[in-house]
Structure formats: C-alpha cells, structure tokens
C-alpha cells in the first residue's frame, strides 16, 4: 500500500499567551489523506481550521506532533527547504486571491515557475497553457484588478497549478464570490480532481461548498468532530 500524501500524527498547535501561559488551538489531531482525494475541512470560524490549513501548507509550523507531506517530515526542514516544498508540492488558492496587482495575469501565473528556476520562454508557454485551461486564454495581458472576482480566482488556480504540484490547498476559495461564480470555481476544482487526479484539500465553513468534496473533516474547537464521506455527514446534518 502506498504511503499517504498527507499524514498528520498527534498534531498540536499552540500560541504563547501572556508571560508563561499558552493557548492551544489544535489538540492532537490525527488523519491521513491519500493522493487523489478531494477533502473539505469544515468548521465554524475560530475552530482552528485555518490554522490547520496553514500548517498543511507549510506556511506555519506545528508546536507538536508530526506532519509528513509526500513522505517528507516537515519538522526537519529549514525555511528554504519549506519554500521549495511549497513551490513544488503545493498549490495555494486563497480567499483573497493574493495575486500581485501590478503584474499581468500571465506573469502572476508564471511566478512559481520563476522561483523553480524555469527559463523565461518555458514560463511564458506554461502560463499561457494554464490560463487556457482555466478558460482565461484571452486575458493574458490584463492585470488582476481589471478582472472580476471569479476570473481572479481562476488566475490564482492557474498559478497554483504552475509547477504541477500533487496537492492543491484552497482556503475559503469561494468566500469572496457570489453563488453562481462559486459553483463555477467548485466545478473547476472537481474537474481538476477527476481529470488530473489532483489531491484537493479545501477549507470552508459553508456546507454547500463542502458538498463538492468526497470526504469531509469536521473540525470543532480544535478537535476532529467527524471524518467521513461528505454525503453521509451532510446528509445526516440536513436530513
């Protein structure tokens, strides 16, 4: 049996509070995610789901426990090795898009390739291909502020795909979008998961968004309340 893409063992995250006290946000979480899964991490605000997301994305480090990504124990890595991991293994999609407003759409998509050391010609070709893939082949020279929210999020998804990472992490990707556009974006994620076998981990507080995933991890107060097929959990909640 192949080792899982994500393996979280007794994961703890706490912050120092005051002089000596600490505030524990995440309490001894355990789960694994296999390659090709489409998982939604759902929970109310303040539940710790975003903190979990940041650790999964190697943007933050756990206070205790182990996080093994793609066979690498992230605790052993220095900041530059973590940067390389983010560059090659993870594609990020954020709620606020996080595009560089002064750069063209094409340059935004090509940026992860720049840090991977890809030549200019290859970067341009790849960025164009990715933008076509998300249906924005005609917007290559535009700057992000000239695009609608849905279009910006498509650009962000194209950027996340730049280095062909096995894992896409999406943090409230539809939080700033209207219902119709949200459906479009979620359909795009589903397609990427189905057609390219990408592992997608999605953080949301909306059951309607979570419904697109196959598996749901329900986080409440820093614990995993439920972990199972989406249909089972949501079906029961809304029955």
């Amino acid at each position: 049996m192949p080792s899982p893409l994500i393996e979280v063992v007794d994961l703890v995250k706490s912050y120092p509070v005051g002089d000596s006290g600490t505030l524990e946000i995440l309490h001894r979480l355990n789960f694994t995610i296999d390659a090709g899964e489409f998982v939604a991490i759902m929970g109310p605000s303040g539940s710790g789901k975003s903190t979990l997301m940041n650790i999964l994305g190697c943007l933050d480090i756990p206070s205790g426990g182990r996080y093994v990504l793609n066979g690498t124990d992230t605790a052993r890595l220095d900041p530059d090795q973590l940067a390389a991991l983010r560059n090659r293994t993870i594609g990020f999609v954020f709620q606020g898009f996080n595009l560089l407003p002064r750069k063209t759409v094409e340059d935004n998509v090509a940026l992860p390739l720049l840090y991977a050391g890809v030549s200019r010609e290859e970067r341009e070709a790849r960025a164009l291909e990715l933008l076509r893939q998300v249906g924005l082949g005609h917007r290559v020279g535009h700057k992000p502020p000239q695009l609608s929210g849905g279009q910006q999020q498509r650009v962000a998804i194209a950027r996340a795909l730049a280095n062909s990472p096995p894992l896409i992490l999406a943090d409230e990707p539809t939080g700033n979008l209207d219902t119709h556009t949200s459906e479009d974006i979620m359909a795009l994620f589903e397609r990427l998961n189905r057609d390219q076998g990408l592992t997608i981990v999605l953080v949301t507080h909306e059951p309607d968004v979570a419904r697109h995933a196959q598996r749901l991890i329900h986080v409440v107060d820093g614990h995993i309340a439920e972990d199972g097929p989406t249909k089972t959990i949501l079906g029961r909640a809304h029955a």
Partner: peptide, 14 residues
C-alpha cells in the same frame, strides 16, 4: 503582503 505571496508560492529567503 507581496513578499508573503512570493514566499507562499516558493520564493526562498535568498
């Protein structure tokens, strides 16, 4: 924020 974005998508410190 720009630096944060660059770091998130794989820029090393150097």
């Amino acid at each position: 924020r720009e630096i944060g974005i660059r770091l998130a998508i794989g820029a090393r410190r150097q």
